[in-house]
């Protein structure tokens, strides 16, 4: 895996973890944040796959 793809995947993974935290941690309780960053995680995963396929 190239560094480009790895870093895009890293962004996706971190955002996905944050989206989960926003969705599941009662203290945070921010469904709007979960939706945005969860969508962003999916988007960056898609971008990473697009780059990998070239």
């Amino acid at each position: 895996m190239s560094q480009d793809v790895f870093l895009l995947g890293l962004i996706s993974a971190v955002w996905a973890a944050l989206a989960l935290a926003y969705a599941l941690v009662p203290m945070l309780n921010m469904p709007g944040s979960a939706l945005i960053w969860g969508s962003g995680a999916g988007l960056f995963l898609g971008l990473a796959l697009w780059v990998r396929r070239g």
């Binding site: 560094q3 480009d4 895009l8």
Partner: peptide, 28 residues
Amino acid sequence: SGSWTALGFGAFAWAGLLLVSAIALANT
């Protein structure tokens, strides 16, 4: 060469954030 320059990578990631901004706009 199968990889970007630093500027190319930065631009691509930045454009991704532009799309996320569009999601945030729609979400709001």
